[in-house]
Design a protein around this nucleic acid. Structure first.
Lengths: 141, 141
DNA sequence: AGGCAGTCGTTATATCGTAACATCGCTGCA
DNA sequence: TGCAGCGATGTTACGATATAACGACTGCCT
């Protein structure tokens, strides 16, 4: 949170109440939240109740790297390493919903070689694995 | 198409008219199609007009590896290599909509190392790159 | 003051996806 | 033959996700 504030100050970005609270909500959650989940919590705090409110705040946070969108879940998680340049990959537990972020530059390597070969210019990548986290895998034994 | 037929025959799967036509529709398209795009074409052919028809056919085709879902687009493409075991990755052109499939086992390596370290058991992966295909990149020069 | 840019608030609607139940045709079997 | 079981289809109804478009407000700059 402090990192986000500092980053915004430094970059001339406005971390408004809605945006700030949206980020807090995601930081407090250990699982990915849908836009409507976020919206519901914003509503409770009197910060807006219509979808565009949440989508705009989430759009801002994603654009500036404070939040990631999990395509597989149509949901959002706070970034582990805000401000740093990174190329995130995610591990999504299908049992408990936990979403772990990791840096996976290597995850691009096979793809980026293929891209070079074919002339494709990568602008962004999505890398997501679904499966069982260590705890849930153990619980299944 | 022939490969799909053979695979179904061999595996005791039923490639019914709806499923067959759904696969044909995707094979004829060079871009990813949404479920409702597919449904519209099925409707024209008199093969059903309600969402579950399309979703069920697509679900069958995805489950058996004839079709891939592109998470980033909420859309579907026919598989380039049906029947073969693979771990597909996609390159999605944001200009022309072209979706290229490639094999990217290496794309998993960074992630799978991380997964091993943390005890996460990967069941499936999503690897998608967005950007410009060679033709569109050239056209932009 | 006036204009501009960014944000917020709202309405309305588009797009994507599924639960639940009825029906139909095939297959195996008494 | 009759019928039970099963997978696939057809339909209704609804839920979930997402955005276009417009107006109002605010801070800032000239």
């Amino acid at each position: 949170m402090l990192q986000a504030e500092r980053h915004c100050d430094g970059a001339g970005l406005r971390l408004t109440p809605v945006r700030r609270r949206t980020l807090e909500i995601l930081l407090e959650s250990h699982v990915a939240l849908g836009a409507y989940d976020v919206l519901e919590r914003l509503r409770i705090d009197g910060l807006g109740s219509k979808p565009p409110i949440a989508y705009r705040a989430l759009g801002f946070l994603v654009e500036h790297g404070f939040v990631h969108r999990i395509e597989k879940l149509n949901a959002f998680v706070a970034c582990d390493h805000p401000g740093e340049v990174h190329d995130p990959a995610f591990m999504i537990c299908t049992d408990c919903g936990l979403v772990g972020e990791c840096q996976a530059p290597a995850a691009r390597s096979g793809l980026s070689r293929r891209a070079r070969e074919s002339g494709f210019r990568i602008a962004s990548t999505v890398v997501e694995a679904t499966g069982l986290c260590a705890m849930c895998a153990e619980a299944k034994e």
